[in-house]
Design a protein around this nucleic acid. Structure first.
Lengths: 192, 192
DNA sequence: CGCGACGTTGATTTGCCTCAACGATTGTGG
DNA sequence: CCACAATCGTTGAGGCAAATCAACGTCGCG
């Protein structure tokens, strides 16, 4: 089965015609490492589904530091949701952590899809609910956990990513400097 | 117009029959200040819509400190989304900041609603998308802003709440101790 | 090979926390 | 309606987690 149909089928059932209709809307794209899919300030026109590789969404603050909001490995959806729904300039940038294959679903096509095949309205409601749970969990974690606990959580949550990702990016995701992450890891190794 | 119909009508159109059908599902409830709607560990069975007053969702960490995830003033929806969709024990508690009138929409009724009136699927998709944008914005703010900037943001975002809410709860929401918030406010007053 | 990004380490600084004490406000039972 | 307790906000002294800054070794890549 096509990987994106497998992904959608986790939550809704589609007829063969509906699957074909959906697949016809998608546009395949290949990104090289560090290639940018969306740049802060542009209007986000599509959601992306990751077939292989990994994307990341991040901002750069006024001191020039990157803050990573989300990683999207294989089988995840990613977009600047704010820009996508308001059609205002994006506050996030999205680029490829490594060579990545994606499928793009343009927002206009998606809106048409909601009308033609209401099951997709359900599908996106469900995955948005899950993304919301994750995002809120993360807010609570940054409020209540130490940097070390956040790092340990990260390792549990993304066990595959820790090997491919530069340490710098893990630091930026959990909200510490690369120097401090390095010191934490040293401590962790010594004590285990 | 009924306030909850006004709220729903911001995003979808309903016939008179659909409105009646929806309203019949709702259960009114009144909460006194500090009264608990959902306790951590219970199963969350309903979403709540706030007619008047204000609710809050929070956790208590292993050191006994409260961390406030969300305030829900008039015209907002609130629930422990994780518990609601998985029917696992809640990780959040929800209680009333002040005397509050709410309408409860049981999850079972909501699921029936999605089938009977698909427009509601759309409605909840849209408000979940907006909640997701807010939650992710907050993740980025805690990663990139100082406590003082987060406080100033809070004042802009909830200009009405700052007067009714105990300072302690504002501190807990933005992620600082009450003592430190007090010192920040002193600084802000001095410099303006 | 040589350059630039990355990870490490140490010295120093700082933003925010902890703890403790105190006055002001709120709420509550007699 | 008062007395008392509880909670809240403030202030200060001291402490700690994490940031900053700087120097250095290493590795991948053009």
């Amino acid at each position: 089965m096509h990987p994106i149909i497998a992904n959608v089928s986790k939550h809704i059932r589609l007829s063969t015609e509906e699957q074909a209709y959906f697949l016809a809307m998608l546009q395949a794209k290949s990104l090289k490492k560090k290639q940018i899919l969306l740049r802060e300030g542009e209007i986000c026109k599509s959601s992306a589904f990751v077939i292989s590789g990994c994307l990341r969404a991040y901002t750069i603050d006024h001191n020039g530091f990157e803050h990573i909001l989300q990683f999207a490995p294989k089988d995840w959806w990613i977009a600047d949701m704010y820009s996508l729904i308001t059609q205002q300039p994006a506050t996030l940038s999205i680029d490829a952590v490594e060579t990545t294959e994606i499928l793009l679903l343009p927002r206009t096509a998606q809106e048409q899809l909601f009308v033609e095949v209401p099951a997709f309205e359900r599908f996106f409601r469900i995955i948005t609910e899950k993304a919301l749970v994750t995002a809120r969990r993360r807010v609570l974690d940054t409020l209540s956990l130490t940097a070390q606990q956040r790092y340990e959580n990260f390792c549990k949550q993304y066990p595959t990513l820790i090997y491919t990702l530069p340490q710098k990016q893990i630091a930026s995701f959990i909200g510490v400097t690369p120097e401090f992450l390095s010191k934490m890891r040293k401590e962790l190794l010594r004590s285990k």
